[in-house]
Nucleic acid binder design. Structure first.
Length: 312
DNA sequence: CGGCTTTGACCTGCGC
DNA sequence: GCGCAGGTCAAAGCCG
């Protein structure tokens, strides 16, 4: 519940972990990776807008992905949003800085709304104050899919569900099952277009994915793992393609080809075509809401879906 | 039996 | 200060 017209008090304290630079790994490798993934990637402005590429490449290690597994995809990006302000000085837990997250509590990014364990120390209040102002980077995906909960290579535990105002669809809250990982995600359906699933990721994984992709047929393996390790990389294990995430707006679509495995496993009921849209959420929840609303309301998906996309 | 989901209660922030 | 909405907790139940 926030007012879009009002600056979010948290905005000034939005925290980007020290590893934030790694958010931008897409800068250097996206062409190559997408090419390898079989994506026909059309990049308009990314190169000029993205900041420096981080020193370390997440793609250095093994790669089980076989380009032949992936169908041709069309990726279209636009870059109208702003990069998040530099908050690298904020004491947020960092995926690449495990000492930060592990030295305090298991879930240091817990918001102020959380009932905390009875720890009657004075410092707790201060901690709370600080933590209250710390927010993990968040990224939202708008996925046109019948599947609510898209697999992304990580294991999630649902910890809550809430009815959303002005929406017939509830919002589900998930937390990464890794005890040291503070990543959360929210999954909800767009009230304007029930076919669109909005998945919001918050934070960065501090561990590798668990390789849930069963047989791995058509899935991406190590590449996805390495990418996720730097925080801003997503994948759809039920798809033969994956999607990349970087700060700013990125929109794309592709033909999702569920493997017979995933279908058999019940993760999907039938082969479907899924359209993905992604953009980094604005620094504030308000902007986030605006962004999402405008995105869905103005047919963002329609803008990015290539004519070749079809629903099966 | 462990892991996960469900669900009502609780807490906090924000607008009025 | 009050009410609302979002976010989270945690007990209970379910399931493999």
């Amino acid at each position: 519940m926030s007012n879009p017209s009002k600056p979010d008090p948290d905005e000034s304290s939005w925290s980007v972990p020290d590893s934030d630079n790694q958010l931008y790994f897409f800068h250097y490798h996206h062409h190559q990776m997408l090419a390898e993934l079989g994506w026909n990637y059309t990049d308009h402005q990314v190169e000029q807008r993205l900041p420096e590429f981080p020193p370390s490449s997440p793609l250095a290690d093994g790669d089980r992905y076989h380009p032949s597994d992936a169908p041709p995809h069309t990726v279209t990006t636009s870059t109208s949003s702003q990069l998040p302000p530099d908050r690298s000085s904020d004491p947020a837990p960092s995926a690449s800085n495990p000492s930060v997250s592990s030295s305090s509590s298991e879930d240091p990014a817990e918001k102020s709304g959380v009932r905390t364990a009875p720890a009657p120390e004075i410092s707790t209040k201060e901690k709370k104050k600080v933590q209250k102002r710390v927010r993990q980077p968040r990224f939202a995906f708008m996925t046109k899919s019948e599947v609510d909960h898209l697999e992304d290579g990580y294991r999630w535990r649902k910890y809550g569900q809430k009815a959303v105002k002005n929406s017939p669809f509830p919002r589900s809250y998930y937390r990464c099952t890794n005890s040291k990982c503070t990543v959360k995600k929210r999954v909800e359906r767009s009230s304007e277009d029930p076919a669109i699933v909005i998945t919001t990721y918050e934070g960065q994984h501090c561990h590798h994915s668990v390789g849930l992709h069963r047989s791995g047929a058509g899935f991406l393996g190590r590449r996805e793992i390495g990418a996720i390790n730097v925080g801003q990389f997503g994948a759809c294990p039920t798809s033969t393609s994956q999607f990349l995430i970087y700060p700013g707006v990125m929109q794309f679509s592709h033909h999702e080809q569920h493997t017979s495995d995933s279908i058999a496993q019940g993760s999907v009921s039938a082969p479907t075509t899924t359209q993905y849209s992604h953009q980094q959420l604005a620094a504030t929840a308000d902007e986030e809401k605006e962004t999402l609303q405008s995105s869905t309301g103005e047919g963002l998906l329609g803008d990015i879906v290539s004519p070749g996309i079809r629903n099966l």
